[in-house]
């Protein structure tokens, strides 16, 4: 289990419907307040599948020169995000977007910063083939794995077939669906509001976050602090990266990106699609300023008129979203 057992399991119903042995079912433990995620019928979670995916995630075997793994840029101690603006891929290549935090992916309806990829299984292909990341071909990666008796055995046990592209994409997706974080001070506060969990400043920030004064929670809503929408936050007046428009070709989508979740946000700096903001203070200041007035900027982004105390309170609240137990447990999986 990745998180403390505070709720029901998502597999309770699945166990009745599917024929695989009960022992092999991976019991996805959901934190308080989390809904049951929809797991694809062709990739039900089992312990072997998740384990295989975890090995693949932290193994550089999927990159062209075997130097870069998924875990190279999605650091467990950083909430599965990177510490730098643009991650380093094979041969020192630099990416063009900031590596997102891979947390609570089981609920995410679309992937990539622009939301262009519809499934987690499909998303897995992108970093492997991206010349700025792993610079490899999943078919060649599969051939490489075929020479590794461990992966051949585990793939056959998990999926009944060799470690082919189907298995690689399924296993990596299965593992990522188990990366769940929801045991922060905020969650403890939500559960029964003990007075000692949040500091006075954080509690004020909590109220601000969910208030009409900031409207933060209009987009950063729900247990994962995102409504998964694609919006323009007015980071620039002119965008170098066209964002969602890269997928849709619509001018109205220039500068729009998927609203990120905020779980563990205090440890996932730098921020924004291009990692251009280094601190939470800079992020809060950006929103307080009301963005740069880009033509596609969301109407919710407007000058907030926060004073210094209020900005500090907001940051204090965002810091309560850190799930320390998750960070420690995730590191143990590497």
């Amino acid at each position: 289990m990745l998180v403390q057992c505070t709720g029901r399991t998502a597999t309770e119903n699945l166990e009745k419907k599917h024929t695989y042995h009960l022992d092999s079912v991976y019991a996805l433990v959901l934190p308080y307040g989390f809904s049951t995620p929809e797991i694809p019928a062709d990739n039900r979670l089992t312990k072997r599948r998740v384990r295989l995916g975890r090995y693949l995630f932290f193994d550089p075997v999927l990159s062209a020169d075997s130097t870069v793994s998924c875990g190279s840029c999605h650091l467990a101690e950083r909430g599965m995000a990177d510490t730098v603006r643009f991650s380093t891929g094979v041969n020192g290549a630099k990416g063009k977007r900031n590596a997102p935090a891979l947390v609570n992916m089981a609920w995410q309806p679309s992937f990539m910063r622009d939301g262009g990829v519809p499934t987690l299984e499909m998303q897995v292909l992108s970093p492997i083939s991206d010349p700025l990341e792993m610079a490899f071909n999943i078919a060649e990666a599969s051939e490489r794995l075929m020479h590794d008796s461990f992966y051949v055995r585990e793939a056959r046990l998990a999926y009944g077939r060799n470690p082919d592209p189907y298995v690689i994409t399924r296993a990596l997706a299965a593992y990522q669906r188990t990366i769940i974080s929801g045991a922060s001070d905020y969650d403890r506060y939500q559960k029964n509001r003990p007075s000692h969990v949040l500091s006075t400043s954080a509690e004020k920030g909590y109220r601000l976050f969910f208030s009409h004064k900031t409207d933060c929670s209009k987009c950063h809503s729900g247990f994962n602090f995102t409504d998964y929408s694609i919006r323009g936050n007015g980071l620039y007046r002119n965008y170098r990266d066209t964002g969602r428009a890269r997928i849709t070709f619509r001018k109205a989508d220039v500068g729009k990106f998927r609203v990120p979740g905020l779980r563990n946000v205090a440890v996932t700096a730098p921020y924004m699609h291009d990692g251009s903001l280094q601190t939470l203070e800079e992020v809060v200041e950006h929103y307080n300023r009301g963005g740069q007035n880009h033509v596609n900027q969301d109407s919710l982004i407007r000058p907030l008129g926060l004073n210094a105390r209020e900005k500090t309170d907001l940051v204090a609240f965002l810091q309560t979203l850190t799930d320390t137990a998750f960070l420690q447990k995730s590191m143990n999986y590497e």
Binding site: M112, V117, M122, I128, S129, A139, D164
Partner: peptide, 28 residues
């Protein structure tokens, strides 16, 4: 175009890996 991945079908399938006709970054 938006629902099939090259990894979902056999490598030799027209939409499979061997064709090298997929933009993985956009899923198209």
């Amino acid at each position: 175009n938006h629902s099939i991945s090259p990894a979902d079908v056999a490598p030799t399938h027209p939409l499979g890996i061997n064709g090298n006709m997929h933009w993985d970054w956009s899923g198209e």
